[in-house]
Nucleic acid binder design. Structure first.
Lengths: 291, 291
DNA sequence: CCAAAAATGTAGTATAGCTACGTTTTTGCG
DNA sequence: CGCAAAAACGTAGCTATACTACATTTTTGG
C-alpha cells in the first residue's frame, strides 16, 4: 500500500469527496447522503440507506465497491473510523454563531483530523534520512519564526534526547549569526509551514554554504527546500477561515517528537541512564527549588 | 450524558478494560479476544468471534449489552471508532526494539488518543468561566516553565485573538516581577501539567494577592489550583515510560486554541476586520521583508 | 444439600446483506 | 437518425448473519 492510498483508507469521507465526480449518477446520490450526515448512516441498515438515497439496494452495494469498500459492512467500519477524526474539512469551519460546546468540538476535531492527515502523508523514508543526519550531528540548530518558533524552542528543549547541544535562535539577527557559525558536522533544521519565511530560508542557505547539513520541515514543496538535504513535508489540512486556528504547529511538534525519540533510541545504554536520572531530578526540582 | 461516560463512549477499549472484572466469566473470555486483537475483531462476524472466544453466540450478544452496546453491529461501529485513536494505552509504549515505522505510528497514536482523552474529560463549564474572565481582561500574562513555557509563548502569540496585550515571561525573575505588577482587571494564566512547578504557583499567588484574576491550566488537582479562580483541568494519559514523549503540551495547546478562538468570537466586527488585515500583511511579510 | 437464581448453551427465526438476472438507459458508429 | 453494444440500474430471490425464546447447566445462599 503506497503513501497516498494509506491516508485515504483512514479517511473515507475525503476519499468520497475526491471520487465524487467519477461516480455513476445514482452512486452520487448515495455519496450525498453519506457526506451530508455520515453519523446517521452509521446506524442505518443497507435498506434504509438505499431508501434515503432513493436508489435500490444493489446500487448501494455497487457504490461500496466503487469507493473501495468490501461490501456494506466494510463501509460501515471504515466510515466509523473516518468519523472518529472529523467530518470532511468543510464541515469544521468555525462561525460566529457557534456556541462554546461547538467550538470545543470543532477545534479538537480539526486538530485531530489534521494530525491524522499528516500521519498518512508523512514519508517514512524522509524521516529515516532526517534521523540518520541528526544522529551523526555534533550540534543542532533549529530555525523558526512565529508559530514555528514555538516548535523550534520545543525541539531545542529536547536536546537531552538528541544527545548533543541544541539551539533555537529567537530573532533574525541571532539566526544569521548562528547560521554563519555552523560548519561540517553541524545540522541546521528549518521549520516553516509555508516554506517562504525569508529569515529561515536564508539561514539554511548560509548554514549549508558553511558546510552544515540541512533539514527542512514544511507544509509543502517550497523555496526553503532548495537549501535542504532532507525534505520533511508535513502536510496540513489548509483552512483559511478567519476563526480556524493554526494547526500546523501540532503536527510539527509531533514530528519533532518522532525525530527526538528515534534519535534517542539509537543512543547507547549510558545515555538512557542519564536521561532517567535527569527526569527524576527534575521531578524534585519542580516542587523544591533547593536540592 | 455526564462528563465521565462521554469519554468512555468514544473509547470502547478503555471501557472494557474498566468493566472487565465486573463481567461474567465467559464475557471476560470475549473481552480478552477484543483487547488482544481488536483489529481482527472488526472484520469478524458474530459467529467467528464466538468461536474464537470459545463461547456461544448469545454470550457475545450478552457481552455487547454488558459493555453498553446495542447489539453486535453497534459494537463493531463503536470499536472502529475507538480503534481510530489507539489501542489501549498499554499498547503504545515505545521500546528499544521498535523500528522507525512503529515509532512513527506509536507517537502519532499516543498523541491522538491523548487529545481524544483530553477532549472527553474537558469540563465545558470551566472553559466557559475561563472565556468569561479572559474576555473582560485588560491584560493577560501566561506563566509556564519548560514544556509549558512553550505553551505560554504560544498563547502570548495569540494576543491578536485575545484582543489585549499578552505576555509570557520566560524566567523566574521576570515571572515574579510581572506577577507583582499585575492588578485588578488583569488576568494571570498559569500553565503546568503537574501543577507543582513552584515558580508558576508562586506567580499566581502573587498575582492574585495584587487583585488580578487567575486561571490554572493543569493535568490534575494540585497546589496550583488553590490560587486559581478558574480551574481548567486537562487530563492526560500519563505514561512514565522512558521513551514516551511528553504529550501534555499538545492538549494544552489545543485548549489555548479554544480559549483564544472563543474570546475572539465575542469581539465585535471591527476587531475581526483588523485580524484579517493583519493576516494578509503577514503573508506578504513572509516572503518580502520590506513592504 | 437443596432450592432459587444466575449463567450459559441449543435451536430456531427474522432480517440484513448480497447475487443472478432482467430491464432500462446511455453510448458509439454506420 | 437508428440500431447495436455496453453500461447503468432495478427486481426478486437466496444466504448467512444477527438476534430471541427456551432449555440446560452452574453457582449461590440458607
Amino acid at each position: 500500500m503506497d503513501q497516498n492510498t494509506r491516508g485515504l483508507d483512514d479517511n473515507l469521507l475525503e476519499t468520497i469527496v475526491r471520487l465524487e465526480d467519477q461516480l455513476r449518477k445514482s452512486d452520487r446520490r448515495v455519496a450525498r447522503v453519506l457526506l451530508d450526515n455520515p453519523a446517521d448512516v452509521l446506524s442505518m441498515t443497507l435498506g434504509q440507506l438505499a431508501k434515503t438515497a432513493g436508489v435500490s439496494e444493489p446500487t448501494v452495494i455497487r457504490f461500496c465497491a466503487a469507493i473501495g469498500c468490501d461490501g456494506f459492512r466494510d463501509l460501515r467500519v471504515k466510515l466509523a473510523r473516518s468519523m472518529a477524526f472529523a467530518r470532511t474539512t468543510s464541515h469544521t469551519a468555525i462561525t460566529a454563531e457557534d456556541d462554546l460546546g461547538t467550538v470545543i468540538t470543532k477545534v479538537f476535531d480539526y486538530n485531530l483530523s489534521n494530525l491524522n492527515w499528516a500521519q498518512s502523508k508523512l514519508n517514512e523514508t524522509s524521516v529515516l534520512e532526517a534521523v540518520d543526519v541528526l544522529s551523526e550531528a555534533r550540534r543542532i540548530e533549529f530555525f523558526g519564526f512565529g508559530a514555528s518558533g514555538i516548535v523550534a524552542s520545543d525541539a531545542q528543549q529536547k536536546f537531552p534526547l538528541f544527545g548533543v547541544p541544541c539551539g533555537a535562535p529567537a530573532d533574525s539577527h541571532q539566526m544569521y549569526m548562528t547560521a554563519e557559525m555552523l560548519g561540517p558536522g553541524d545540522v541546521a533544521v528549518g521549520i516553516s509551514n509555508t516554506g517562504h519565511t525569508r529569515e529561515v530560508v536564508t539561514s539554511l542557505a548560509v548554514a549549508r554554504a558553511n558546510g552544515a547539513r540541512t533539514i527542512g520541515i514544511t507544509g509543502q514543496s517550497s523555496p526553503m527546500l532548495t537549501h535542504c538535504d532532507v525534505h520533511l513535508i508535513v502536510e496540513t489540512l489548509e483552512n483559511t477561515d478567519l476563526y480556524t486556528p493554526t494547526v500546523s504547529r501540532l503536527s510539527h511538534l509531533v514530528v519533532i517528537d518522532i525525530l527526538s525519540t528515534a534519535v534517542s533510541l539509537r543512543r547507547d545504554e549510558d545515555h538512557h541512564e542519564r536521561i532517567n536520572k535527569m527526569k527524576s531530578r527534575l521531578a524534585h526540582l519542580r516542587s523544591n527549588p533547593f536540592i
